[in-house]
Design a binder for these strands. Structure first.
Length: 815
RNA sequence: GCGAGAGUGGCGGAAUGGUAUACGCGACAGACUUAAAAUCUGUUUCCCACAAGGAUUGAGGGUUCAAGUCCCUCCUCUCGCACCA
């Protein structure tokens, strides 16, 4: 009998699929479209690891399932080639990033193919190619023209190791996301001129559209929290004996009669004007200390700190003068950078007041501390006090009235704030797309005209950053000097490069039209293929996934795209860890190399099937060295029973039992694949295979027609998980076309049930036996059979008070 | 601290309020073999020597003829956010 040997068949079919362009998608096909993908790879030189094997197999299974079902299924492939991992790898390797990419990417090709992923290589993209990043730069120019790109001087996170600015989301626990080891330094802050995209303009619509998305719920929640909408008011306090006034943002303006102090951030622009000579030294010392502190230190501090400025501000409603303090618990980047201190209803303000002996006024009838979040949760339960004419009202009544009064005295205005900050899009590193801006002494900052794009990144010998805050492009003197597009005078190119998140924010659209040199993508093809039907990844729940939504919405707004959302379905899948739950890492040396497992003889099919079987996709998988041998056995069993069938002397008789085993499996597997319940789909296939073995042992393989149907169904359904073995068996079964397109079994309702069914019998809620009855037996017959069962009789000590019959399931007696 | 989710055999995990422990791993036994591997067959939640029986889905309570599933209280773990006013 022909034995299962992955080594012999996997490379054979990989070559066949390549030669026949089996996975090339026809974007103009009249078939229904399906596009599924995992987040693309950033090639770092290390090759694929087990996490990649997990991620890309998830989308590959979906793409294969749909392709076999008859969809025009597109499983694209590309490379997020710009960015620090690639640049750092090139530095280590002592070559330019361009050279190293030219070497690395072909290696990845081999590895992807060895995994049996059904990518369409004819439409491959890479973000470091000028023909791609021309359009990343074009996006920058469009954002600029629509007033969504601006430059601002800000305190920015700075990673000492990478010599670059970091976005907020790239700072994790006070450290750089790429350097978060125990020996790595904390990030610092530097004042740097930076380009920003005004994503905050889209905060509201991004938030509103989140609920309707068919995404992993935790990611939707994370996005909502990230956007962080909060409704409140801006309230202005006049500073006593001064022309200045301080505007605070508050969501609890209904407690503002309880204000006993104001706090402004140490970085606040008014601080120099508020501070009187007596307090100047202290204030400046505090500012300096804050400035030097890392974010981590600032967060780790339990005790509140702060100093008094000497200024007093007037509560616009009560007229009460309150002292103005500076303290680092107030953040300069949120709201107005100033808050009103209401220690009676705010925990942080309470701590602050306690520490510095400031007054406390309670604005609730209880006259004790009630958190403003409690008040907001139950505004009808709390009564206002110490608030002049509002005393005695519930907060539900008083809240709008207090706001109305604030507005009428000209001291307040309703205001919505977002936690989301604008997107910092410039990086002071070489390996990225140059920002298409020319600085001219006369004209200022001028966009590179669209017809001059791309601004090609010059290939430099020395591309390492030197720590002056500018990228190596500052040293590319020839490249740097360019005439101003407006006045023709001397100009100098911008030396910042674009954040790689820009390249990855629109790549799914480029997949649809990778060679277009007139536009980032054609609207017609994009309108047909967007949104992406299935997307998955184990990272980037907020940053990438929000930026992609933002840029897609921008395209929608400027009329390039009908659908404002990029991803219809997003699965945030789990990662693979070592058996002890530790993350795989190079330094620990506990990695599992997928290619090695394939080479050991288990093959890609068994590896793929194990990864999809081990757990539901949203859970983390602990690597089990026995797992792949286990799924190998399963594939082997399907293989052997198919070969058994091919060698059996069959007849033209019928075998309903076989059909009753396979048809329910077809139903279950098809449904489970639709919702990415891969583990139970595979379990169902295993069960069906076991059932076939059982029938083979009992009655042998007789019915040519029914056994063929069972074997072919099994092979087809195994296809998405184990495509090589399935393809080989498909051809063994006599087919000459590929299994991969348009071959999926369909179940028939009449085989979903058998002629007998098993009924459970309960007495007083306890299982006391089971009976087997004909499927068409009447309720009366079944109850009669149940009550005459020998075992059950011993428990039926008296006439049942109640008898419940659940059709096809059970009989329950109450005695 | 706030928010979300989860606790089921030795392990990964299954289960529209209706026979808990599917499927796989591991373990044990048998068949085949000179032998081993591979393969095939069987057993495997726990308690009791076996059977009969009983217990069992983190703990406790409730609803129901019937609860892993629904409700309440508590414990533990994981993941997000983290002084956002």
């Amino acid at each position: 009998m022909k034995r299962y040997s992955p080594k012999d068949i996997e490379s054979k079919w990989q070559k066949y699929w390549d030669d026949n362009q089996t996975y090339k998608a026809d974007l103009n096909s009249s078939k229904p479209k399906y596009i599924g993908m995992s987040m693309f790879n950033y090639p770092s030189g290390a090759g694929i690891h087990i996490g990649h094997a997990m991620n890309y197999t998830i989308s590959d299974v979906m793409a294969r399932f749909k392709r076999q079902q008859g969809f025009e299924s597109y499983h694209p492939v590309g490379w997020d080639a710009f960015g620090l991992p690639a640049e750092n790898y090139a530095i280590k390797a002592g070559v330019s990033p361009q050279e190293s990419m030219a070497k690395i990417i072909p290696d990845y090709h081999k590895q992807y193919k060895a995994m049996g992923w059904s990518n369409d290589w004819s439409k491959e993209i890479a973000t470091h190619e000028p023909k791609y990043y021309k359009w990343s730069q074009w996006i920058f120019t469009q954002m600029h023209k629509h007033g969504l790109a601006y430059q601002d001087s800000r305190m920015q996170w700075w990673c000492e190791k990478d010599n670059t600015v970091l976005a907020n989301e790239q700072v994790i626990d006070g450290k750089c996301w790429r350097h978060d080891g125990p020996e790595d330094p904390l990030v610092e802050k530097k004042e740097i001129k930076q380009w920003f995209f005004k994503i905050t303009d889209y905060a509201d619509e991004l938030l509103e559209a989140t609920d309707a998305l068919d995404w992993t719920p935790s990611v939707k929640l994370a996005q909502k929290n990230w956007i962080g909408r909060s409704e409140g008011a801006e309230v202005t306090y006049k500073v006593q004996d001064s022309e200045h006034s301080i505007t605070v943002f508050t969501t609890a303006y209904d407690t503002m009669y309880g204000t006993t102090f104001l706090v402004v951030a140490p970085e606040h622009e008014l601080v120099p004007f508020l501070t009187d000579p007596e307090h100047l030294a202290e204030v400046e010392a505090y500012q300096k200390a804050t400035f030097l502190k890392s974010e981590l230190e600032r967060q780790a501090e339990k005790e509140k700190t702060g100093v008094f400025t000497g200024a007093y501000a007037i509560n616009p409603l009560s007229g009460r003068p309150v002292p103005v303090w500076i303290a680092d618990y107030v953040l300069v980047g949120y709201g107005t950078g100033a808050v009103m201190g209401v220690p009676g209803e705010d925990e942080r303000d309470y701590e602050f007041a306690q520490k510095f002996g400031l007054d406390i006024i309670y604005t609730t009838k209880q006259q004790e501390f009630v958190s403003d979040t409690d008040i907001k949760a139950n505004p009808e339960k709390y009564i206002i006090a110490n608030s002049e004419e509002f005393d005695g009202m519930t907060f539900l009544e008083g809240r709008p009235k207090i706001l109305a009064k604030l507005v009428s005295v000209g001291a307040g205005v309703a205001k919505v704030n977002y936690r989301l900050r604008d997107w910092s899009v410039g990086r002071q590193r070489y390996w990225g797309a140059p920002i298409p801006i020319i600085n001219c002494e006369k004209c200022g900052q001028v966009l590179v005209p669209e017809e001059d794009l791309p601004v090609v990144l010059p290939e430099l010998k020395d591309f390492q950053p030197n720590g002056d805050g500018r990228s190596a492009l500052a040293r590319a003197t020839e490249w740097l000097k360019v005439p101003c597009p407006q006045c023709g005078g001397e100009g100098e190119r911008e030396t910042d490069t674009l954040d790689t998140y820009i390249c990855s924010s629109w790549y799914m659209l480029r997949y649809l039209d990778p060679d277009n040199d007139q536009a980032p993508f054609g609207s017609e093809v994009a309108n047909k293929w967007m949104p992406v039907d299935f997307y998955n990844g184990a990272d980037h729940a907020t940053a990438h996934m929000i930026y992609a939504r933002f840029v897609t919405r921008f395209f929608h707004k400027i009329g390039l795209l009908e659908n404002p959302e990029p991803f219809k379905k997003f699965l945030y899948n789990g990662k693979v860890t070592a058996a002890n739950g530790e993350m795989f890492s190079k330094s620990k040396g506990n990695g599992v190399d997928p290619l090695e497992i394939i080479a050991q003889g288990y093959g890609a099919d068994a590896l793929r099937t194990y990864l999809m079987f081990a757990a539901p996709l949203d859970l983390w998988v602990k690597w089990d060295p026995q797992g792949v041998p286990g799924t190998f056995r399963f594939i082997n069993r399907v293989w052997n029973i198919t070969q058994d069938f091919l060698e059996a002397k069959t007849t033209d008789e019928n075998d309903e039992k076989v059909l009753q085993a396979i048809h329910p499996a077809i139903k279950k597997v098809t449904e489970d694949l639709e919702t990415q319940k891969y583990n139970t789909a595979i379990a169902t296939l295993m069960k069906a295979t076991n059932d076939l073995y059982e029938y083979k042992a009992k009655t042998g393989i007789k019915s040519e027609k029914d056994w063929r149907f069972a074997a072919e169904s099994l092979v087809m359904m195994m296809g998405p998980f184990a495509p090589h073995a399935a393809e080989e068996l498909w051809h063994d079964l006599g087919h000459t076309d590929t299994l991969q397109r348009d071959h999926w079994p369909v179940y028939e309702e009449k085989y979903l049930t058998s002629n007998t069914m098993t009924i459970a019998i309960q007495v007083n809620g306890k299982l006391r036996g089971t009976i087997s009855v004909a499927s068409d037996a009447s309720k009366e017959d079944i109850i009669a059979a149940a009550s005459s069962d020998e075992k059950v009789k011993t428990y039926l000590v008296s006439e049942p008070k109640k008898t419940i019959y659940v059709p096809g399931k059970l009989v329950s007696f109450v005695v």
